[in-house]
Design a protein around this nucleic acid. Sequence first.
DNA 1: CAAGGCGACGCAATCGATTGCGGTAAGAAG
DNA 2: CTTCTTACCGCAATCGATTGCGTCGCCTTG
Lengths: 340, 340
Amino acid sequence: MQKRVTLTDVARAVGVNPSTVSRALNEETVNQVSQSTVRRVRKVAKGLGYTPNTVARGLRTNRTMTLGVILPDLTNPIFPPMVRGIDSYLAPRGYSSLVVNTDGSDATERTLFQSLMERQVDGLIVATGHSNHQLMHDAHERGVHAVMVNRDANGVPFPTVIGDDSQGVFASVAHLHELGHKRLVHLAGPAGFSTSRIRREAFEAACNSFGLQGRVVDTVAYSIEAGQAAMDSILDGQATAQFTAVVAGNDLLALGTYHSLRMHGLRCPDDVSVVGFNDMLFANDFQPPLTTVRSPHFEMGVESARLLLNEIAGTQPGGARVILPVSLIVRGSTGAVRAS
Amino acid sequence: MQKRVTLTDVARAVGVNPSTVSRALNEETVNQVSQSTVRRVRKVAKGLGYTPNTVARGLRTNRTMTLGVILPDLTNPIFPPMVRGIDSYLAPRGYSSLVVNTDGSDATERTLFQSLMERQVDGLIVATGHSNHQLMHDAHERGVHAVMVNRDANGVPFPTVIGDDSQGVFASVAHLHELGHKRLVHLAGPAGFSTSRIRREAFEAACNSFGLQGRVVDTVAYSIEAGQAAMDSILDGQATAQFTAVVAGNDLLALGTYHSLRMHGLRCPDDVSVVGFNDMLFANDFQPPLTTVRSPHFEMGVESARLLLNEIAGTQPGGARVILPVSLIVRGSTGAVRAS
DNA sequence: CAAGGCGACGCAATCGATTGCGGTAAGAAG
DNA sequence: CTTCTTACCGCAATCGATTGCGTCGCCTTG
């Protein structure tokens, strides 16, 4: 690289002390410098193509204007919108984010956490569904700023952003109830994820409140394969389907359900209605288009970034808990139950 | 945050000079320190929970161990795998990456480029399909290290990683030819993208070489909507389809084609065969499962990261050009042409 | 026994910016 | 005309680590 233009270079060119240049270029301190020098400095700085060295500044101020984002896997389609939401809030405020993937491993999460700390990030956004409680508590002890997103913060002393999953599941069940469905199946997400528990409990509560028969089947992962496997096990186990609708723990499980139904010669929604959760990318492009609950992932990103910056600024109450509304998107995968 | 443990703290605890601690903890210089001291230092450092301050190190060494990744939009499903590929190569080598989105705007690309420079990134991976030639040339002038990925580097003086698009399109056309198709349509990507041009030219060449009738229709974007619109315009314009197969510029355009066909009461592959490009996420989950060319996005990420690190190390020939092989994935969207 | 060599470590400068404190000059107040 | 503000700016320390150079003691060698 060419040798960069430094503050000192500008100072020399203008004929003032570097500290004056620094003050002239900083909004906070510009009033400590006469207007005429400010003008001269600005002019020369632009002329020389001066760009501040964020690293040097970070060393002195102890703020890197960089945040860490910890998530399980970027290729899971719910995360890109979230990351973009985070960035959309951060970028105009001069912050950048370092995104890392844990792949669900506690060990790599620990490593990455450490690595982010070494990089002196100003704060953390943690979106790992089931996270290392111990790690988060240690972080809190050490005074690290963080917010949790998309996971229940039971006992974790950081602000939290989640979608209103209960409401979403309730709306799904209500929708199926209106369509005349009486016997439902819930494909529950894997144990250990707070979303799994919340959605499952909401399903059971909703079935009770509508007087419906609700069966819960566990899956081993939030994936297409796990959804297909779980559905296969149901359909293989009995001659005729003992249910008319499936409430999937998320859209991937719903997709797995599609595959399984197709394999068993069942049609959706004619034989079985399916409703997903998340409204991920392409939910409208599968066949049939998937009825699902829209989680506001972009907004969750925005909100978590906002909370984190407030945390850092010290204007955040602490155990804040932001619950974002969700909405049922009715498409083609749900229909009235057939007269039998 | 708690006050962090610094090198000086460790030095004081051990009873040596900070420089000795620095050398003892650095692989390059550890042989300048006696083994016994190294052991003591390591022990105390671990005991105190010392973590090096990357910012301070970066200021002194002028290397931040951070790279910038510039891409159009992370929510485009081809990018997450690429980013993960980049990270998988970088992380074990102590590098992190800062990912930014241009949304196709030259102005924001320029701003983001500037912002990455201020952050002292050690190099850039540029994955914007149609990129600012001027910007890249300026960057090269200034001695910035960079590699281009997924775009043709015509005249850009940086190493480049691309998939073998021509080969992929050729394989697609060959496949359709074998199935008996004689009249093909190519939904070409928008002008300005090198991939659009390359795939279009490959399509025309392949049709010629197989003696097929190949028609090219332009689209305004690599999107579902643009694909659907282009296809609509074809199908609305003529009573009966004058073609039996569509070679889409990418999978999104292929998806748009699905929608259009469905709207016009045509079935795939019975009436029209469709082949996409990229093998993006869920290509196997659409109905019918999409026959497409698999672009090795993850490997492209890995390879670009590798090239960039070599660039930085100075062991890179300069105008290197890595072309990764692609492969045709035959699924359900292509079938033999019906006897008419 | 003396000179030279070398291993191990300390000293201090350095990276580029920020900031508390002190100083100077101009203007206001007496 | 003197004294006190106030505005503006410079000095120098500082952030935490790296690194060229110098030094000291010990061992080897003649």
